[in-house]
Nucleic acid binder design. Structure first.
Lengths: 224, 224
DNA sequence: AGTTTCAAAATTGTATGCAAATTATTGCGA
DNA sequence: TCGCAATAATTTGCATACAATTTTGAAACT
């Protein structure tokens, strides 16, 4: 079993990525401690880790706050992540997919194919696609067999606002396109086309980033 | 002023990067607390952050230990870092160097030119080159104006053993070659040759990685 | 009214004590 | 002598108390 601090860390991490806390909001130690039914000590440990992970900003003697990203920042995040996902795809080709990794990616594609063909089940499609998307991309970074790369990718994927923007109010057309891109990426990896796989993965992420930034700017403009 | 936890964090971070603690060695809370003259609380905060930074491994109920990298791991680190430094160089071209950034890079090159021409001052060349190298690369990542990229680069540069391996027992020939590569990288950035700058920066890091890995394997073989 | 100042309240930083888990050690048996 | 089990010692996890800092709010002054 794990420690309480680890548990608090995990739950807060999910909550922030999911968008439960709006950007810039203060994370009160006593409040969280009360909510989890623990003392401030494990909460402080969790907050400290979350800050090191980049999900929170920390100011000495002033506490922690949910980090907020500007549109500029978000462009940088996705440009960086595009390079890393491209590298992961290339290394996945170089080192080869395991049976299990290939099976999982194929399963995700076939399942999504069925789901997307039937527009009746549109309710909850955002949450579904969020999970399916992760289930598709995880095997790729695993297949790179590069722990450091996997670590940096995790830091580039779990960013406040991103999940919420992409999967909260889903855009069925965008999901369809992303799904198509997945098919070609898997095709390239299986066909040992390293350069093509890298380019496709890179562009796949780049498009997602452009979408997130557009949504951020749109919402900001709409609210103003 | 900063907190004690932050101070402990900073000092431990430097010590680990410098190679004062050998890989795998346990970091005892009470020991460190005694050494710094503080209680365990700020030490725990510092260790927690260092673990999140990737410098320490953490096992629940068993504490923290200096993370050790195998040669395989190190290859992955440098492959990843090569992609990131390449991206930084490309974005530096796209966004342009500031006057100050250009001046700093040029100064480093001219200074190193003088130092390397005079082999009398070889004592302390490792430490000198370590600083000079950082002073050359930092402006590039700054010029990318990509905070996320800068953050990931920091995590890819400050790795246990790397600094010690590269700069503790310096190899004058390798330093000379790295210095030459710096000249071409700056040339490419100034000349707005994005693709060339990216390729040069990437290869520059790749070579450094190959050197570190060779040294690791050589030392391991020699010790066995 | 607006600004400044000062004090009260709230929040974070640190030390300490104790519970729980892990690690080391001792003693026994094969 | 080696392996194993049980216990002692060490180390970490958490809660709590208090100190230090920041934030808030109100009163006084311009």
């Amino acid at each position: 079993m794990s420690t309480r601090g680890q548990e608090v860390f995990r739950q807060l991490r999910e909550a922030i990525a999911r968008g439960d806390y709006s950007g810039g909001s203060r994370m009160s130690e006593v409040e969280i401690a009360a909510a989890f039914g623990v003392s401030r000590t494990p909460v402080r440990a969790a907050l400290s880790e979350l800050a090191a992970e980049g999900l929170l900003d920390y100011t000495p003697n002033a506490g922690y706050a949910v980090r907020s990203y500007s549109a500029e920042d978000m462009i940088g995040v996705f440009e960086t992540r595009a390079a890393l996902e491209g590298l992961a795809a290339r290394q996945a080709v170089e080192k080869g997919l395991s049976e299990a990794q290939y099976a999982q990616m194929k399963r995700v594609i076939e399942e999504a194919d069925a789901v997307l063909r039937n527009p009746g089940e549109i309710k909850g499609i955002g949450a579904y696609w969020g999970k399916a998307n992760a289930a598709f991309h995880n095997p790729v970074s695993e297949a790179s067999r590069n722990p450091h790369l996997q670590w940096l990718l995790r830091k580039s994927r779990d960013i406040p606002m991103v999940q919420a923007t992409l999967f909260r109010q889903p855009d069925i057309q965008r999901i369809q396109k992303a799904h198509d891109e997945h098919i070609y990426i898997l095709e390239a990896i299986v066909g040992r086309q390293a350069v093509r796989a890298e380019a496709l993965a890179r562009e796949h992420i780049y498009k997602a980033g452009a979408y997130v930034v557009a949504r951020m700017r749109g919402k900001a403009a709409g609210a103003a």
